[in-house]
Structure formats: C-alpha cells, structure tokens
Amino acid sequence: MMGERVIGDVILDLRNISLAFGGVKALTEISFDVREHEIRAIIGPNGAGKSSMLNVISGVYRPQQGEIVFHGEHFARMNSYKAAKAGIARTFQNIALFKGMSVLDNIMTGRTLMMKANLLQQAFWWGPARREELAHRAKVEEIIDFLEIQHIRKTPVGRLPYGLQKRVDLGRALAMEPRILLLDEPMAGMNVEEKQDMSRFILDVNDQMGTTIVLIEHDMGVVMDISDRVVVLDYGKKIGDGSPDAVRANPEVIQAYLGASH
C-alpha cells in the first residue's frame, strides 16, 4: 500500500447489541463502530460470537436488544432485504454459490437487486431488459478483470478449486457495489499462497473501490496485517477494541487466546 487512504466518519454504529438463543447468550451488550473506508476486523476464539455479530449486521439474526445505525438511519430490526438495499453485501464462510452455474452467471446474481426490467421483458430479453443486461454484464466483466479470473469466466463454479470459489464469492458480493462488505472468514481453509492473494484483493477492493470492509478471521497474522482497527470478542462479550498493535498488547486478549480457560 502506498500513499494514504482517508478514513471518514462513522457509517455503521452498533449500540448495545444483545442476542440470545433461548438461554444461551450469544452476544452481550456489544457496541462498536465502523468508519468509512476502513478495514475493521472482528476476531475471537471459536464460539466467541463473531459470526453471530456478522449475522446481526446483515439482518439474518434479530437482536433482542440494541440498535444499528447505518448512515444515520436507525434500524431496531434489520432484515436481509433491507441490509442489501442499504448497501451491505457479504460473503459466507461455507461459500454460497450456485455450483452448476458459470462464474459469470454467479457474479451476475449479485446484480439482481439492481435489475429493473419486469419479468415479461426479461423472459423475451426485450428492450429495457436487453440494455440493462448489457450494462450489468459490463460491470461484471470489470469485476472479473479486477479479480483476475478471466480464464474461468465460463467454467461452472462446482469445478473450481476452493480458493477460486472464494474469489468468485467475493466477486458476487462486489457486484452489488456495496458500501460495506462483510467477509466471513475469507481466508479459512486456504494455503499460504491463496491467503496472500485474497489479502491482496481485500486491500485492493478497499483501496480502489473505497469499500468499507468488516471481516471476521481466525488467522490472527492476516488480520493484524491488513486491518485498521480490530474488535475482540470472547464468550459474546467485547474484550478489546483498537489498533492491531493495541489489541495485541491487551492482556485480556492474550488471556483469551492463550489462557487456560478454554
């Protein structure tokens, strides 16, 4: 990374979020914010509530308590549709793609929300539908170029190795032209080279498209290298928040990761 990125104001603010499944408290009064253009990581040991947190932001889970403020708008209850409309896109830990469809078509699904033509027009690929598809295709091609996956454009996703599938999943999320991109363990299960590639793409997305990124990651090394600020969760509670260096020095964090309690 050369030069400097300008990190803007808070665009996503999570206030006192609590989430419980029956008697199990997944998240307890968690508050943190995300600033525009930054890379924000959520880390923590297994079962700390990282994925729950991401699911709350993207509207999959509804917290019993607390509110989400996104671009000045208050959401007591987020849902997936609202989240997508508001410009929140995500990738999934266990890749959510259509295995039988080509890379191109999969990324195209990310444009669904922006397609305005009605069913009849689309069925006959007529007038507005045709123009619209050409425009969307152009955008998808830019993403394919950006992620360097031209050679697999027409390959069914199911035939691709895992690392490339992850990249396609990222492409599908990018096709929404999101303001915030949520990445659920983007590097899980990858080898060193794939991790390096993915880190580079995340940094490039953040840098060139200006997209704000919230990512969950298990691999501490990667997170510390690419994040601007890090939130640490343990047993559904926030135990640290700050720059990677500050978090690394935080005794509670060290305790959670290295301590004998788990």
């Binding site: 990374m1 050369m2 030069g3 950006f146 490039d204 840098d207 060139q208």
Partner: peptide, 8 residues
C-alpha cells in the same frame, strides 16, 4: 493504470 493511483 490499475493500481497506479498512489504512485506519486
């Protein structure tokens, strides 16, 4: 020009 924005 891709990626060249920050080269001064």
């Amino acid at each position: 020009p891709r990626g060249m924005r920050h080269y001064t």
